[in-house]
Design a protein around this nucleic acid. Structure first.
Lengths: 181, 181, 181, 181
DNA sequence: GATGAATGAGCGTTCATTCAT
DNA sequence: GATGAATGAACGCTCATTCAT
C-alpha cells in the first residue's frame, strides 16, 4: 500500500502500473491480488485508510466545549500542517478526489447520513445554527473552507510558495473569513 | 474538438481514447491526426482556446476605473456564471488543470512575467498595494479566490447543489471576504 | 518519379510514404494514383526505367568486335562510374534489389529468354565458349562480376572509401580476375 | 527468436510484425516484450547471436601457421557451406546487413580497432603485407571477397543454382582469384 | 501463500488508397 | 485532370489480470 501511495502521489495513476507497485513493494505482482481483488479496490482501500487516519487525527484535539471559531481554526490548522508534513499522502488524496471515485466520495460525504461521523459537517451546521457562520448550503460552506486549503497545500507541495507558521495561520484565518457571518 | 472536450469532461482522460473521440465526432481515427500532430497537442489546443475564450469574456466588462472590489465581484460572478452555463467546458478545465500540464500552466501563471496579460493578477496586486486586499503571497490569494469558486462550480455541475442568482452572489461575496483586508 | 527515387534512396522504403513523395513532387497525393495504380507499380516502373537507362548507357560504347576482356572491362568501368556519379540511383537500385521484387527480377534475368537483351549475359556466355571465362554456371559468374562491384559502390556511397580513377580500374580488373579462366 | 528469424528471413522486415512473430512462436504478443524491450532490440540480439555463432565456427578450424591462401580458402568454404546449410539464417543476415543497422555494423567492422577480433581483417592485412594479396584498400578487398560469396549464397537459396562441393570449391577459388596478387 | 511469466485487449499513431469537390 | 481530406486496418507497445508452479 505504501508503494502504491508513493507511486500514485509521485507520478499519478498513469505512473503506477501494478508491476511497478509490486516492484517497489518488493513482492510479486500476483501477490497484490491476494489482498485486493482489483487495482481499483486497492486504491479505494488506500483512500479509506488515509481518510480515517486524518479523521482520527482531527478528532484528537477536538473539544466540543470550545467556540465554533476556535474549533474550526484548530482543525483547519491541523489539516494544513498534516498536508505539508505528508506531501505524498496529500498528492494521493488530490489524485483520488479528482478521479471518478472522488465524485462518489463527495456525494456520500454531502448526502450521507453522516451524523457525528464528519467533524466539519457538525461544526458548520452548528455555526450556521448559532449564526456565527454564513447561512449558505453546506456544500458551499465546504467549498469555501476546503477549496483554498487544498489549493494552497498543492501549491506549497509544488514549490510555488513557502508556508511558515505565520502564513499557515493567516491562510486558515482567511478561510474562516470566507465562511464566517 | 467538441467530441474530445465532451469525452474528457464526462469521463476524464482515461475515458477519451482517440478511437472514442473519433467515433463521437463521426470521423475516422486517422482524420484527427490531420489536424493535430498528437493527442497531447489536441488537448493543449483545446485548453488554450478555452482559456482565451474565458479571458476575452472576462475582459469585456472589465473597467480599471471601477473600485477593486467591484471589479473582483464582477469578474468572479462572470466566471462562475460561465462555468455553470458551460459545465462540460468547466469539467474539461478541471481535468486539465489537475494533469501534469496543469501544473506547468499554474507555474507560468504565477511566475510568468504576466504584466497586463492576467486580469486577476493585476487586480490582486493592485488590491494589495491599496491595502484593500490582505497582504499575502499572490499564490495564497489565488487559492483563496479560486479554490472555493472551482469547488462550488464542480459541486453544482455534479448536481450537489443548486445555484440561483442570489446564491451565486453570496458565494462570490464570500470569496471576496476571504481575500479582503 | 524523381521524388520517389530520391526519398527511397535517401531513407529507404520506410521513409517514402506516398504523402511525402507527393509533397516533394509538389503534387497532390491523389494525383500519383492517376499515373500509377499502386505504389508498388510506381516503384516497379521506376526500377524498369532506371534499368533501361543503364542498359542503354552500357550499349553505347559496346562493340562486339573487341575482345571479351576489353568489353567486360569497359562495361564494368562504365557501370561503376555510373553508380558513383549517381549515388541516389544506385541506392534506389540496391533497395529494390533487396526487396521481394528484386528476387523476381533476378529470376527473370537469369532464366528469361533474354537473347540479345542482356549484354553481360551474352558477354559471359561468349567468354565461356571461347574458354576465356571460367566454366561456371552463369549465376555464379554474375555473382563474381557484380557482387564486388555493387558492394564497393555501396561502400563508396556510404563514405567508407574513396574511389579515384586508378582504384576504379584496379577494382574492375579484380572483378575480371575473379571470372577469367 | 526462431519465429522472428524465420519470418524476417522469409518475408523481410515488412513481413514480420510482432503479432505474426508471436503467433508463429505460439505466444502472446506481450510476452515478447518480457524478453526484449523493443522489436529493434530483438532484431539486434538476433543478429549478434548469429554473428557470434559464425565467428566461433570460423575460428574453430583456423590456424595461423597455415599459408594465407589456405586459411582464406578454408574460412570462405566454411562460410559458404554454413550459408547453404542454414538458408534462413543467411536470409536474415542479408536483410539485416541491408537495413540501416547493417551500415552501422559495416562501419564498425571497417573502422573499428578490431585487432584480433576479426579473422578476415587480419587475414587480408597479412596477405597485403606479404604481397600475396592485392594492394587495395581493405574495404575493396572485403567487397571482392564477400560480394560474390553473399550473392552466390543468395542465388543458391532462391533456387537459381545448385551448389555441390566441386562448385563450392570453384566459387571460393574464384573469390581468391579476385583478391590475390 | 507467493510468485512472475503469460496473456490479449486496448492504446496512440501511420499510411496506402479513395473519392467528392 | 488535379486535389487533399478522409479512411480504417495495421503497427509497436502497455498493463491489469490470471494461473501453473
Amino acid at each position: 500500500m505504501n508503494a502504491a501511495l508513493e507511486l500514485i502521489a509521485e507520478q499519478g495513476f498513469h505512473g503506477a502500473p501494478i508491476a511497478s507497485i509490486a516492484e517497489r513493494a518488493g513482492v510479486g505482482a500476483g501477490t497484490i491480488y491476494r489482498y485486493f481483488e482489483t487495482k481499483e479496490l486497492l486504491i479505494n482501500t488506500l483512500f479509506q485508510e488515509l481518510h480515517n487516519k486524518i479523521h482520527t487525527r482531527l478528532m484528537e484535539g477536538y473539544n466540543t466545549d470550545r467556540p465554533v471559531r476556535e474549533r474550526f481554526i484548530r482543525a483547519h490548522t491541523g489539516l494544513l500542517r498534516f498536508f505539508i508534513a505528508h506531501p505524498l499522502k496529500f498528492r494521493f488524496l488530490e489524485q483520488y478526489l479528482h478521479s471518478p471515485y472522488g465524485a462518489i466520495f463527495r456525494r456520500d460525504q454531502i448526502f450521507g447520513q453522516a451524523g457525528d461521523e464528519d467533524l466539519y459537517r457538525m461544526l458548520l451546521e452548528e455555526g450556521k445554527a448559532r449564526q456565527i457562520v454564513k447561512d449558505l448550503p453546506l456544500v458551499v460552506l465546504f467549498a469555501l473552507a476546503f477549496g483554498p486549503l487544498l489549493t494552497v497545500a498543492r501549491d506549497r507541495i509544488l514549490g510555488f510558495v513557502e508556508l511558515d507558521e505565520p502564513l499557515i495561520a493567516q491562510t486558515v484565518q482567511a478561510c474562516w473569513d470566507g465562511i464566517k457571518q
